[in-house]
């Protein structure tokens, strides 16, 4: 019953987001029907584009899960970007300096990057648990520390021959791209991260719904006083929740920098960290919802350029339209509730 309701709410939110986007397209003098036609075709019209959509979704699934997981425990991890950077930096460092068989190297990179993300999130978690420092403030700070750490480390140790601003190219051995996968999707830059992401969705869903760990974490999130009363170690769970959240963001970093991208650039805060918040909101913090909304956002991201190319919508307006769709979809949950209340009231008065 409840599950259907939140599914319905999310769908209504998506429709609301698309409607808002349509209004904006119309305002900018374009035909919304054509606009959406090319937007969705751009994301889905052939295997390559489907692959690209999934590649964009991969990163969002990880960061969306990271944010959703922390939400479940009553924490707001706004630092997925920083954790992603640290995961990416660790992955890049290993990928550029370690030589070993791929079958060993890739798992090593995954584990190391995820651990780096976990550690980066555990610090604000510890500060929250021990000194009650608000995690929003702490994770934002950690984002900047990560940003400047990357800014220093990449040029100092991993720079290319000529360019100061990005690392050397990741060797094929350490890349998450796989030839067979690229071929299936006709030259898309989809990478094996998508399998990791799918696995993460399932594992997180199981942790939250079926394990004592999830039971503890959610209890702490809903009511830490009651959790404490019941003998659940609250500080431990806060650190743990942040660590798992950062673990996921670290995976986002590994697969983004070693799969989606081919090297690591400095001076860029990955926007997926922030988009993860919208993904989690639209997905109602459920792992399955996160997966679905990530794919939706992936379509928008990869279809936008084709819409711009095929219509008179200027790229800047294109960005705005995508942002509006995301914004309305993510906050649409609120709008639909408002709508529900209004209609209920009206039916009473009638």
């Amino acid at each position: 019953m409840n599950r259907y309701k939140s599914l319905f709410t999310a769908l209504a939110a998506v429709v609301l987001g698309l409607l808002a986007g349509a209004v904006f397209m119309a305002l900018s003098g374009s035909n919304p029907v054509a606009g959406f036609y090319y937007l969705f075709r751009g994301g889905l019209m052939n295997l390559e584009r489907i692959g690209n959509t999934l590649a964009s979704a991969t990163t969002l699934i990880f960061t969306g899960l990271a944010v959703a997981f922390s939400f479940k425990t009553g924490l707001f991890n706004i630092g997925a970007s920083g954790q992603m950077l640290m995961g990416g930096l660790t992955a890049t460092a290993i990928g550029l300096s370690v030589q070993m068989p791929r079958i060993v190297l890739l798992p090593l990179i995954v584990l190391a990057a995820a651990s780096a993300g976990a550690l980066w999130a555990a610090i604000p978690g510890f500060l929250k648990a021990r000194f009650n420092v608000h995690e929003v403030v702490a994770t934002i700070m950690m984002n900047w520390i990560a940003y400047w750490t990357v800014y220093y480390t990449i040029p100092a140790y991993f720079k290319g021959t000529f360019l100061e601003t990005e690392s050397r190219r990741i060797p094929a051995l350490a890349s998450f791209r796989a030839e067979w996968l690229t071929n299936i999707f006709r030259g898309s830059y989809i990478n094996m991260g998508i399998f990791l992401a799918a696995a993460a969705v399932v594992v997180i869903a199981i942790i939250l719904d079926k394990t004592t760990l999830g039971f503890e974490l959610k209890a702490v999130g809903f009511n830490r006083h009651a959790a404490e009363y019941a003998g659940i170690h609250v500080p431990k769970n806060i650190v743990l929740s942040m660590s798992i959240s950062g673990f996921l963001a670290g995976l986002a970093g590994a697969t983004y920098y070693l799969g989606y991208a081919v090297n690591m650039q400095i001076g860029v805060v990955p926007s997926a960290g922030i988009d993860g918040i919208a993904v989690a909101l639209l997905g109602a913090n459920s792992p399955w919802g996160v997966a679905a909304s990530s794919v939706f956002f992936g379509i928008l991201h990869s279809g936008k350029g084709f819409m711009n190319a095929m219509t008179k919508v200027p790229p800047e307006i294109g960005d705005t339209i995508i942002a509006i769709i995301i914004y309305f979809a993510a906050t649409g949950v609120l709008f639909t509730r408002l709508w529900e209340r209004l209609t209920r009231k009206r039916s009473k008065e009638a």
């Binding site: 751009g42 019209m45 390559e48 690209n52 590649a55 830059y189 989606y260 991208a261 081919v262 650039q265 860029v268 926007s271 991201h301 990869s302 936008k304 350029g305 084709f306 711009n308 190319a309 095929m310 790229p315 800047e316 294109g318 960005d319």
Partner: peptide
């Protein structure tokens, strides 16, 4: 026509070239 990539990675650039080409 010009297109604006959503990021600065090779994948982002290549995607926009693909969009131009397909259009």
């Amino acid at each position: 026509k010009y297109l604006k990539p959503s990021g600065t990675t090779e994948a982002d650039y290549l995607k926009e070239i693909g969009n131009l080409y397909d259009a």
